Computed example of a mutant assay.
Amino acid sequence: MTGRVVAVHSSPVHGFSKATRGEIALVEGVGVVGDAHAGPTVQHRSRVAADPSQPNLRQVHLIHEELFVDLRAAGYEVAPGSLGENITTGDVDLLALPVGTRLRIGSETVVTVTGLRNPCQQINDFQPGLLKQVVSTDDEGRVVRLAGVMGVVSRGGSVAPGDPIQVELPPPPHFPLTRV
């Protein structure tokens, strides 16, 4: 499976949306340079409050551009970066990837997928009703999360729009993504 980087984003503060950049730099084991969520240990405020020594499995947030198309069709005003992702992707079925999938981005960068983003009430503060669009329940009663995936930087480098994304599945058995 080959995809592409549509846009890249970062923010030095813990806010909701992230500014679009021409390029971002990723550091192995840390995350996006200059982003509030970068660090070897957890940076998400609620998780820091619970246990600041936890490893940061959410160094990089990726969302598929197809989600924005669906949300706009449902009447929401969203654009790359507005939901707080670092990398907006195209042509990669992020939500179907198993845990441990390696995403080779550009010529050097590798992000290893750790799990699904679990959006909170802040998404409704951004636009009322949006949470129900990205978290729902299927016919079997399972929670379905559509707000992208999280990962850790396994090899640093720069990432820019237009960079190719090569998907490398881990060896079997494959385990489905769960929230991180």
Rank of each mutant, 00 (worst) to 15 (best):
E28D: 05
E28W: 07
E28Q: 14
G29D: 05
G31Y: 01
V33P: 00
V33M: 02
G34T: 00
G34Y: 02
D35C: 06
A36W: 11
H37W: 08
H37D: 10
A38Q: 09
G39W: 12
T41L: 10
Q43A: 01
Q43N: 03
Q43C: 00
Q43Y: 02
R45M: 08
R45P: 15
S46C: 09
S46I: 13
R47K: 15
R47C: 09
V48M: 06
D51R: 06
D51W: 03
P52K: 01
P52W: 06
S53D: 11
S53N: 08
Q54F: 15
P55W: 13
N56K: 06
N56H: 05
L57M: 11
L57D: 10
L57V: 09
L57S: 09
L57N: 12
R58Y: 05
V60F: 08
V60S: 05
V60A: 02
V60E: 10
V60K: 13
V60Q: 11
H61K: 08
L62W: 15
I63Y: 12
H64P: 07
E65D: 15
E65Y: 12
E66I: 01
L67A: 06
F68S: 07
F68T: 07
V69T: 14
D70R: 14
L71R: 06
R72A: 11
A73T: 07
G75D: 05
Y76Q: 02
Y76L: 04
Y76T: 00
E77A: 10
E77T: 08
V78W: 03
A79S: 12
P80T: 00
G81F: 07
G81N: 06
S82D: 09
G84S: 13
G84P: 13
E85V: 13
N86Q: 07
I87V: 15
T89I: 01
T89K: 03
T89S: 13
G90V: 05
G90C: 06
D91Q: 11
D93F: 05
D93C: 01
L94A: 03
L95Q: 08
L95K: 06
A96D: 13
P98Y: 12
V99M: 13
G100H: 07
T101F: 08
T101D: 05
R102Y: 03
R102W: 09
L103V: 04
R104P: 07
I105L: 06
G106P: 00
S107Q: 15
S107E: 15
T109L: 02
V111N: 00
